[in-house]
Amino acid sequence: MKAHFTINGEKKEFEFSEGEVLLDLLRRNGYTEVKGNCYLGTCGACTVLIGGIPRASCVTLAAQVVGQEILTVKGIGSIKHPHPIQKAFAEKGAVQCGFCTPGAVLTAYALLKNNPSPTVEDIKIALDGNLCRCTGYIQQIEAIKYAIELIKGGK
């Protein structure tokens, strides 16, 4: 089947199989910043935002989100112009092997959009689906707290 999606603000048309998951469609079309791992929705490496909501793209059928707005980690900032969350993750040592980072950053992005001043408990609940095999959770929480400061300070 053929259908349109809006990915990182750009309207795109893709041809895909009716039974294909969104993760595969994205990676096949060059969005390799979306990582694939468990294919069961349990690790969060494949997190994307669909209509602003974090979802595991490995268990989301592409056909189900036809026409919707999809955001990958490249959609919120770049190496030259990183989003404060990306900057905070780099500065606070929240990136180790980096495999979980795109998903964790996007989850944090969605959290701060809805709740600009989350408690540590709120951050933990939001991140509970983004596993970090390097176990860098403390750094991720610190990075998100730092990102809040950066955003509030307009940096």
């Binding site: 349990t42 939001a126 983004n130």
Partner: peptide, 12 residues
Amino acid sequence: LQSIATELLRNQ
């Protein structure tokens, strides 16, 4: 409800 699965899956 918050203890069921993970945030990503609770969104689905």
